[in-house]
């Protein structure tokens, strides 16, 4: 039942057309330390309109501990919040 998501600090850029591209984000790990993660590559971007709630879903590649991982970032348009899934 419990959603597996985390609120994150995000730096993203917004272009003339209104496209949003995430650049890097910060979050607290289990030891409550702040860690910064850079987004290496954007794989996919889609708009999810479930339950009338608009969310931009980004599938991205990040590099931590010298391994490349796939992650999902979501931007909730109504609340302007970023989440890591």
């Amino acid at each position: 039942m419990k959603p597996t998501r985390k609120s994150i600090f995000m730096i993203a850029y917004f272009d003339f057309e209104g496209n949003i591209t995430p650049v890097k984000f910060k979050l607290f790990n289990e030891e409550q330390e702040k860690i910064t993660i850079k987004i290496e590559r954007l794989i996919k971007k889609e708009l999810n309109k479930f339950a009338g709630n608009n969310m931009l879903i980004y599938t991205c590649e990040i590099c931590t501990d010298n391994t490349i991982k796939l992650i999902e970032l979501r931007y909730e348009l109504d609340t302007c919040r970023w989440y890591l899934y």
Binding site: M1, K2, P3, T4, R5, N48, F50, A51, G52, N53, M55, Y83, Y85
Partner: peptide
């Protein structure tokens, strides 16, 4: 249904 769709979007597995 609406609540369920919303929870699924939030990442609920059920």
């Amino acid at each position: 249904s609406w609540q369920a769709a919303y929870e699924l979007q939030k990442g609920s597995t059920v």
